[in-house]
C-alpha cells in the first residue's frame, strides 16, 4: 500500500489521479442533485415548503491531496406544520459506502448511504428508519413517516 489515502480509493484496476478525483466529485454532485430533485418533486407535490438554496463545503482528504479546489454540495430543507427534514451531505469518501447524506428530521437522525459500486446506478439506502439490519432502499415518500 503506497499511501494511506490510496487504500480508500484504489483498487487493483485503478490508480488515483487528480482527474479521477475530479471525476468522482462531479459524479457525487450529480448523484446528489438527482436525488434531491426527486425529493423536491415529491415534497412540492405534497405541500412542503422546499428550500434548496443551502450548501455545505466539500474539501475532502483526496481533494486536498490532489489539489482539487473546494466545492459546494447542496443541502435540501423541507418544512411544514408536520415537522422538518434536512438533507445534509456528509461526504463522498466515507468508509464502506459511495457517499453519505445525513437526514435530520423533527423525529430523529437517519443515515442515507449509496451502497452501489462506483459507476453503477446509485443504491441509496437509509438506515435507522426501520429495524432492518440491511437498511431500506430510500424513497422520497418515506419522509412522511420520518418527520
Amino acid at each position: 500500500m503506497s499511501d494511506d489515502l490510496d487504500a480508500i480509493e484504489e483498487s487493483p484496476q485503478t490508480t488515483v489521479t487528480k482527474e479521477l478525483v475530479q471525476e468522482r466529485v462531479r459524479d457525487w454532485k450529480n448523484r446528489l442533485s438527482d436525488l434531491f430533485q426527486e425529493v423536491r418533486i415529491w415534497a412540492m407535490g405534497n405541500g412542503w415548503q422546499v428550500d434548496s438554496s443551502g450548501a455545505v463545503v466539500m474539501h475532502e482528504e483526496l481533494m486536498e491531496k490532489f489539489d482539487v479546489p473546494a466545492t459546494k454540495q447542496p443541502t435540501l430543507r423541507l418544512d411544514d406544520k408536520r415537522g422538518y427534514a434536512l438533507f445534509k451531505p456528509k461526504g463522498l469518501w466515507v468508509i464502506g459506502a459511495n457517499g453519505r447524506i445525513d437526514l435530520y428530521t423533527s423525529k430523529g437522525t437517519f443515515i442515507i448511504v449509496d451502497l452501489a459500486e462506483h459507476g453503477a446506478a446509485p443504491r441509496w439506502t437509509i438506515f435507522r428508519a426501520s429495524q432492518k439490519r440491511d437498511g431500506d432502499l430510500f424513497k422520497p415518500e418515506m419522509i412522511a413517516n420520518l418527520v
Binding site: 480508500i8 456528509k90 466515507v94 464502506g96 440491511d134
Partner: peptide, 13 residues
Amino acid sequence: GTTNAVGSIDALE
C-alpha cells in the same frame, strides 16, 4: 491514517 467518516455503522454491522 485517515480522517474520513464512516458511511454507516449499521451497514458495517
